[in-house]
Structure formats: structure tokens, C-alpha cells
Deep mutational scan, measured.
Amino acid sequence: MEVVDPQQLGMFTEGELMSVGMDTFIHRIDSTEVIYQPRRKRAKLIGKYLMGDLLGEGSYGKVKEVLDSETLCRRAVKILKKKKLRRIPNGEANVKKEIQLLRRLRHKNVIQLVDVLYNEEKQKMYMVMEYCVCGMQEMLDSVPEKRFPVCQAHGYFCQLIDGLEYLHSQGIVHKDIKPGNLLLTTGGTLKISDLGVAEALHPFAADDTCRTSQGSPAFQPPEIANGLDTFSGFKVDIWSAGVTLYNITTGLYPFEGDNIYKLFENIGKGSYAIPGDCGPPLSDLLKGMLEYEPAKRFSIRQIRQHSWFRKKHPPAEAPVPIPPSPDTKDRWRSMTVVPYLEDLHGADEDEDLFDIEDDIIYTQDFTVPGQVPEEEASHNGQRRGLPKAVCMNGTEAAQLSTKSRAEGRAPNPARKACSASSKIRRLSACKQQ
């Protein structure tokens, strides 16, 4: 084909351009004929944790799935940006308080904090938690009735009371019990989460009196709706648990309003109706937990002794299953770290194939690490110290990083047969305790 000078094309009309061969290198194709290559998922490591896909996002930050490269346990990490926390009232204080509380709590029905990582340079905090497959609110939203069968609701409620009793025994008032803060594992274990607005009572406090509340409006008791200066913290949790039980068994809320002012007005009056299909035992329990006067409201001991709580409820309806993943529609909620794991395991070791967030990740503290002497050669063979940054567990980050890069360049065919977990650990520049 004859090559045409581009400067001469402006002298031709459209018809003349076609005659000189423009149609031979300008093609129009339908979008259905285009085959897009999927974007390669680059592996990203935060300390010893391999990052997966997004699980959810809230006002405080994002939650992603991660894999512990040492234990191969599935975890969830809450990623918090200090810049964003400053824009939220009491944001930083709530996060630090939640970390302090979770560090000393150990119960099967309370979410466990596994690790805390802090990135000084990017001003990011990573709260590594045990993995929960789904939230209770997500399960309720997945069915038209917006409720659980009585047998399933009873099982979840009993676990909620177990976890709540443990928190109260530790002198902690949750203040925000609701389905949105109750998570579930694949085995059906309920976990109380989000202790950001919780309050730890003084060890020598005479009672459970509280003065502040930041919980969700629909789950607040009349004493808070009416603006009382002080109130019983434990009875606030009992009320919120009662509203939660009402919601998961009926699909409704005892109090509603077009806006928060109308909602608080209705809560302050204390008038509500219980659907007739709840039955006398459940209705009596709800009335005891939603008692207007805090002094007359049920205690956890009274809830445990109630006939509806103690009764064994046979399954009359099919239980609400864990819904498919909202993004991938995966009904099994498979591990989202698998594509990243395959990338590390299947590809040659190259620095361009993975990302390490930083050479140094500070753990379990908000301060910069200490310094240790770096050896410097002298005339008599002895070495003197220069400062060298280290990880919180004493690992020399720069030395590990250099060693990792040197190993990656060394030709050794046997290394390709290593397991995925050992490869992740070798790529991680800074081991965590």
C-alpha cells in the first residue's frame, strides 16, 4: 500500500481520502468484538498479612480480608486513616479506646483483636480482627420478611446475652447493641463488635452510672431520649438488646419516626405494640426488656430465667442462610486472597510482582521504634555504632529488605517449588510478632 504524507491529507475531501486508502487503516468495530484482558491483581503485604478484597466500608474506614502468612488464618483488617478520623467527632479517641478494650477481652461471643499495625509515614492504622463471614443486618436484609425464624432468632439472642453478660462482668457498657454490630462466623457463632462508643466503668465505681451516649437513635432507651444527665449503663444495653430481639423476630421496630426528633419523642413516651403472632412468652420477655422505668427493666439474670429464653424451640421454618457475597455473588464466600496468593505462588519472584506497604510497620504502639547501633568497621576489626531503624520486634528492616532482594536475584530452581506461605513470609520485609 502506498504511504501517504499526513501533511497532504488536509487537502483532500472525505471521498478523496477514502480513495487514497484511509479506509485501510481506520476501522470501526462493535464493542462486543473487544476482548478485555482482566487487570492483574497485584499482591500487597502489610507486615506478614497478605491483603485481599474489600469486605465493607463504614464511617471510620474500610475493612478488607487478609491472610496471615505465618498461621494461614483468615483475618479481617480495619484500615483507618488518621486524616479521616480527625474529621469525625471523637474519632481518634474512640478508636484508641476500642483498641484498649479489645486487647483485654477474651470471649467467644466478643470479636477478638489479633494485631494492631501502624504506618507512621502514611498515617494509617490497621486493626487486624478475627474473620466473620457476614453481619446479622446483612442476613436480615437478604430476606423479604426482614426477620429470622424463632428457632434461629433464639439461638442468636442467647449468644448475644452470653457476650453481653461477659462485657458487663468486665465493667464495660457497649451502648450500641444492634444487628449491624453483631457479626457471624461460618459456624454460626455470634460476635459482638464495634466497641468504639463503649465505656469502661471505673474499677471502684459504686454502680453503672453513665453520662454520655453515642449509640444508634432507634435503639436508645427513654432515659436517653428524654435527655437525662445520668442513667444506668447496663440497663441501656438491656433495652438495646430488647429492641434487637423485637427486630429479628418481627422484622419491625418498636419505635419509629420520620426524623430523629419524632423518633425520640415516640421513644420518650414509651408506647409501642407487640405483634400478636409473637406469642405470650416472647411478648412477656419483650415487655420486661423494654420496660420504661430502668429500675423495673429486666436484668440479665431475669432474662436467663425467663421461660422463652430457657425453652427449646424446634425449627418450624427453614433458617435464613448466609447470603452470597454482594460484589462477586459467591454463595460460598470464598477467600478473596486466592488470586493474590496464586500471583505470588505461580509467578517468578520479581520485585515488580508484589507490593510491600512499607519497609517498617510499627505494631502494638503509636510511637516510632527505637534505634540500635549499626556496626561500623574500624582499624582493629571492631565496629562502632551508628543508628539503624528496627521493627518493634527488633528485626532490622533494611537488612531483611536487602537480603530479600538478593535472594530474589539468585538463580535457584529449587526455590520455585516452595509453598505459597513460605514465599509470602520471604517477601515480607518486616516480620511481626
Rank of each mutant, 00 (worst) to 15 (best):
P6A: 05
M11K: 10
T13W: 01
E14L: 06
G15V: 07
E16A: 13
E16F: 11
L17G: 13
H27S: 04
T32A: 15
Y36V: 04
P38A: 06
P38V: 06
R39I: 07
R39A: 07
R40I: 15
A43M: 14
K44S: 11
K44T: 04
I46S: 04
K48A: 04
K48Y: 11
K48T: 14
Y49L: 04
Y49F: 07
Y49Q: 01
L50A: 13
M51R: 08
G52I: 15
D53C: 07
L54P: 08
L55P: 09
G56P: 01
G56S: 04
G58E: 06
G61Y: 01
K62S: 11
V63G: 03
E65S: 13
E65D: 10
V66M: 00
S69V: 03
T71R: 04
T71G: 12
R75F: 07
I79P: 01
I79S: 04
I79V: 01
K83N: 10
L85T: 00
P89G: 01
P89C: 09
N90V: 08
G91Q: 07
G91N: 11
V95L: 05
K97D: 09
L101W: 00
L102T: 01
R103H: 14
R103S: 06
R104T: 10
L105I: 14
L105V: 04
K108H: 09
N109A: 03
I111P: 09
Q112Y: 06
L113E: 07
L113R: 03
V114T: 11
V116E: 13
K122V: 04
K122W: 11
M127D: 01
M129K: 10
C132V: 03
V133T: 06
C134R: 13
C134V: 03
G135H: 15
M136K: 01
M139A: 11
V143L: 08
P144I: 04
E145A: 05
E145S: 12
E145T: 13
E145M: 10
R147Q: 02
V150K: 10
C151Y: 12
Q152C: 09
Q152E: 04
Q152L: 01
L164F: 00
E165R: 08
Y166M: 03
Y166D: 00
Y166G: 09
Q170D: 00
Q170C: 13
I172M: 02
V173A: 01
H174P: 01
H174I: 03
H174A: 01
I177L: 05
I177A: 01
K178V: 02
G180N: 11
L182A: 02
L182T: 07
T185I: 02
T189R: 11
L190Y: 01
L190W: 01
S193H: 01
D194I: 00
A198F: 03
L201H: 08
H202I: 10
D207M: 08
T209N: 13
T209S: 04
T212V: 02
S213I: 05
F219A: 02
P221G: 06
E223Q: 03
D229L: 06
D229G: 06
T230R: 11
S232W: 03
F234V: 08
I238V: 08
V243M: 02
T244F: 03
L245C: 01
L245M: 02
Y246F: 03
I248Y: 01
T249V: 14
G251I: 02
L252Y: 01
P254S: 03
P254G: 01
G257I: 15
D258L: 02
N259A: 00
N259E: 12
I260T: 10
I260D: 08
Y261S: 03
K262P: 14
L263M: 05
L263D: 02
N266S: 05
I267H: 12
K269C: 07
G270S: 12
Y272P: 11
Y272G: 08
I274A: 05
G276L: 07
G276T: 08
G276V: 06
C278E: 15
G279C: 03
G279T: 14
P280L: 10
S283A: 09
D284E: 06
L286T: 07
M289P: 00
Y292P: 11
Y292S: 09
P294T: 07
R297A: 01
R301V: 15
Q302G: 07
I303D: 00
R304S: 04
R304K: 10
Q305I: 13
H306S: 13
S307I: 06
S307P: 14
K311A: 15
K311W: 06
P314M: 15
P314F: 08
P315L: 11
I322N: 14
I322H: 04
P323N: 13
P324V: 14
D327I: 14
D327V: 10
K329N: 10
K329I: 09
D330L: 14
R331C: 11
W332E: 15
W332V: 14
W332G: 13
S334G: 10
S334V: 10
S334L: 09
S334Y: 13
V337C: 07
V337W: 02
E342W: 08
L344E: 09
H345D: 09
G346R: 14
G346D: 02
D348T: 14
D348W: 14
E349R: 11
E349N: 12
D352T: 14
L353S: 15
L353P: 07
F354T: 02
F354E: 12
D355R: 11
D355H: 07
I356Y: 07
D358L: 14
D358I: 07
D359C: 07
I360V: 12
T363R: 07
T363P: 10
Q364V: 07
Q364E: 01
D365V: 07
F366W: 14
V368A: 11
P369R: 12
P369W: 12
V372H: 15
V372A: 12
E374C: 13
E376S: 14
N380G: 14
G381S: 10
G381I: 14
Q382H: 07
R383H: 14
R384C: 07
G385D: 10
G385R: 07
L386G: 08
P387S: 11
P387K: 06
K388G: 10
C391V: 04
M392D: 08
M392R: 05
E396H: 13
E396S: 08
E396Y: 09
A397P: 08
Q399C: 09
S401W: 04
T402S: 10
K403S: 05
E407K: 13
G408M: 14
G408I: 13
A410L: 11
P411S: 09
N412H: 07
R415K: 08
K416F: 03
K416H: 11
S419E: 09
S421K: 12
S422Y: 13
R426Y: 13
S428Y: 11
S428V: 14
C430F: 12
K431Y: 12
